[in-house]
Simulated scan of single mutants.
Amino acid sequence: MTDANKARFNAEAAQWDSNPDIQQATRLAHKAYLSHLPSDPAILSTYDILDLGCGTGLLSLALAPSVRSVTAVDAAEGMIGALEAKLTAEDAAKNVLPICAMLEDPDDERIAVDPVTKEKVTGRRFDVVVSHLVLHHILDLRKLFATVFGCVKKGGKVMVTDFENFGPEARKFHPESKMDGVERHGILRDEIKTVLEEAGFVDVKIETAFELEKQVETEPGSGVMGPTMVFPFLICEGTKL
């Protein structure tokens, strides 16, 4: 994550959850992930999940009741602080571990801690690595997925969701005032498939997961939100043999 990204997300952390588009995109992503994960609760409840770029933990907390554990990682201190505040509630999930880190090493000791037992597990790996609305902020996707591949157990999966780059209009997903830290206007199907395969994943599948309708600026840079547009989101999945 660049300094521009960190600054933006630290500044927006307190109001992040109040954005209805973010809430809706997370609900739809959660539904998409569940449709691609084992449908048998007994199997899914054994899964350890790594959520990269977890933000305030909306997706992590949505997944937590269905799985054994969620390790929630984000480089923005403000976002992790917001998640930590949620986890102080009496009825909060006890199987979510928030970590403020720029994860670049699968053997990073910070993700070796088991959220359930709180014990360090050398060489800890995950059944599934998820990431939602993060890829368009990452300059070097190949470096990212090399790290992700190392974090996945043999037989495990990567599943990531982000909006699709369907042409010049995809730029409208962000107001012009929030372009700092945006490295690409959505993800390209062929590009992400190639990146996942080059990282070592097999059985790579790129599918439309859902569509999000959101307001866009009436004119680029005007700051005035008016018409709505429909943005397709992709779910990108691969398996580590």
Rank of each mutant, 00 (worst) to 15 (best):
192 I>E: 04
133 L>W: 13
61 L>V: 07
61 L>G: 03
12 E>G: 08
107 D>P: 02
32 A>K: 02
109 E>F: 06
9 F>A: 07
58 L>G: 01
135 L>Q: 10
116 V>Y: 11
238 G>R: 06
98 P>G: 04
93 A>F: 07
129 V>C: 02
152 V>S: 00
38 P>Q: 00
176 E>V: 15
202 V>P: 02
202 V>G: 12
142 R>L: 02
8 R>C: 08
9 F>M: 08
84 E>C: 04
185 H>K: 09
56 T>Y: 03
107 D>N: 15
145 F>S: 01
61 L>M: 15
9 F>W: 13
187 I>R: 02
186 G>L: 05
60 S>E: 02
101 A>K: 14
45 S>T: 13
162 D>H: 09
137 H>E: 06
180 D>G: 10
140 D>E: 09
177 S>A: 13
153 K>P: 02
33 Y>N: 00
12 E>R: 14
147 T>C: 15
201 F>C: 09
207 E>V: 11
163 F>Y: 14
95 N>K: 06
137 H>G: 04
89 A>G: 10
26 T>G: 02
200 G>K: 01
151 C>E: 04
39 S>P: 00
152 V>E: 00
160 V>W: 01
94 K>M: 03
56 T>G: 14
152 V>Q: 01
15 Q>E: 15
34 L>F: 07
213 E>N: 12
48 D>G: 09
67 V>F: 07
26 T>N: 15
220 P>E: 14
31 K>D: 14
68 R>T: 04
188 L>I: 13
138 I>K: 03
227 P>H: 12
102 M>Q: 12
75 A>H: 08
203 D>C: 09
186 G>V: 05
174 H>C: 05
199 A>F: 01
166 F>D: 08
38 P>V: 03
56 T>S: 13
136 H>L: 12
163 F>R: 01
84 E>P: 00
65 P>I: 10
22 I>H: 12
241 L>V: 12
222 S>H: 13
40 D>I: 12
167 G>M: 06
125 R>I: 05
171 R>P: 00
131 S>Y: 00
161 T>Q: 13
213 E>L: 03
75 A>P: 05
223 G>F: 10
